[in-house]
Every structure is written in C-alpha cells, then in structure tokens.
Amino acid sequence: MSIILDKNSKIVVQGFTGSAGTFHAKQCIDYGTQIVAGVTPGRGGQTHLDRPVFNTVHDAVRETGANVSLIFVPAPFAADSILEAADAGCATIICITEGIPVLDMARVKRALIASAQAGREITLVGPNCPGVITPGQCKAGIMPGFIHKPGPIGVVSRSGTLTYEAVDQLTKRGLGQSTVVGIGGDPINGSSFTDILTKFEADPATEAVVMIGEIGGSAEEEAARFFKEKMTKPVFGFIAGKAAPEGRRMGHAGAIVEGGAGTHASKIAAMRAAGVTVVENLSEIGETVARARKPLAA
C-alpha cells in the first residue's frame, strides 16, 4: 500500500496544454502514471499527448473517471481551479502552482473545511509544492522520478529540491520510499504535516517517516504534538532555516520568522520534547535513518 496515490489513481491535469503542464505531464506519463485527461478551457475536443482535452474538470471526470487532479494553472487562476476540481468530485487535488495569493488560499481552505464538515473529505496537497509520488506506481508532480525507489520510508516536506536531496540520500543507502509528499512552502496550504503523518501512521507499507520542515508558522510544532500523542512509527525530523535572519522571507512565502514565532529553535525543541529523532545536519538525513534501522534488520 501507500498513501494518496497508487497504481489505480486516474489523473486529470488542469493547465494541460501550457508549457509546464505539457512538460511535466509527459514526464508523469513516461513514469507510468495514468494521466487520463487534461483540461484547458476552450480546447475541449482536442487531443494532447495522446490524451483527450476537456473544457471543464466536470467533463473530464464524467468521461474518463478521473479521481485525482494535478494543477499547473498560473497563480492568478489557480485557486479557482482547485475549487473547480473539488466541485467536479476529485477527492484528491495536487496543486503545483507557485505564487497564489494567501487570501485566495484562505478562501479555498475554508471551502474545503466546509466540504469536510458536510461529509465530503477532499485531500489537497500544495500549492507551491513538487507534488506526490508513490515510487514504482504513480508520480503526480515535478520531482525527478529516477531518484526514488519503492520501500518502507514515508517522506513529507515543505520544500522541493530539499526533498530530492533527502530522497537521494535514502535511496543511495538502500532505503526506498512508500510515498513522498511535498506539502508546499506557502503559509496556508491544503494538507499539513499532521494530515500526512496521520495517513502514514495508518499505512501498513510505511515503517518510518522523514519529515522536512522549515522556519515559519507552527505546523512542525503541531506535528510534534501529534507524533507524541498518536504515532507509533518513528519520525526523523529536519528543519531548514537555522541561519536565516528574523523578519525576512526566505523564498517561500511561508518561510519567515515573525514576531519571534516559527523559529528554528522552537521547532527543534518541540520535536525533541516529543521524541522525534532530530537531524541537525542536512547531509546526514539518510545516514541517520539507516543507522536507526540497522538493529531492526539484523
């Protein structure tokens, strides 16, 4: 098993015919992912990458049975695209788009919360994220497929290339991954660390989790609390941004220490206190997991 995606996931790509959508959809198809349709308003009826193009997500879902949406729509229109996918019945939505206004995401998030309260749970991953990959089964995102391999380690991260770095270290030490989830670098995102940890805890194929956080917000602190109260599987945590000054945004809109909150020190302290294995040196993530697992294998 795995979380969020498996070999049966049927994906519709929103923003399919744009340059980013085209390039990455092709990479996903080459990986073996079932991309079943694309959506570009006004280009319905055409064929692109040998897949049918529809005007609306509703049409795509009805005609192809797609259950996951992968979004590459430009930032000004991306929030609306997320709501369209949700309205069309996609239970899983992965939004790659970077630069969506925070207020747009606040409105999206509240719509998703209202939907869940009404009994229809939707998993949104992102925005501003590399996507989700279940190695060997399904890749829905922009991550390089070849650095991954199937295995027992779940990975969840706020960053893109930092995740690749960690995955590469794991794979090179023979540690494959169950699913790798990039939750994105924005202040308001769909799935939190806690949401993904909940799924990994319930997934029989996941034996341990690597969690890569960064400065800003309190998602890592909340995840630490969840780990302490609800998790039985080991978690290895790394937090980026120790050398970052306060009050300056470090690329990601969410990576900013404001009013003394969201500091590297507070996150590390919260994880330590909860019993998460903290990795201080980015280069030692793979090594630390490998060392901890050796006694189990022996």
Binding site: S159, L162, G185, A240, G241, A244, A255
Partner: peptide
C-alpha cells in the same frame, strides 16, 4: 536551486 535547499545550504 529551490528555496528549501537554499536555506539548507546556508545552514550547512
């Protein structure tokens, strides 16, 4: 390349 890795590189 990438904001997270850029921060991680500074830290390293």
């Amino acid at each position: 390349n990438g904001a997270g890795l850029a921060m991680g590189t500074m830290d390293t």
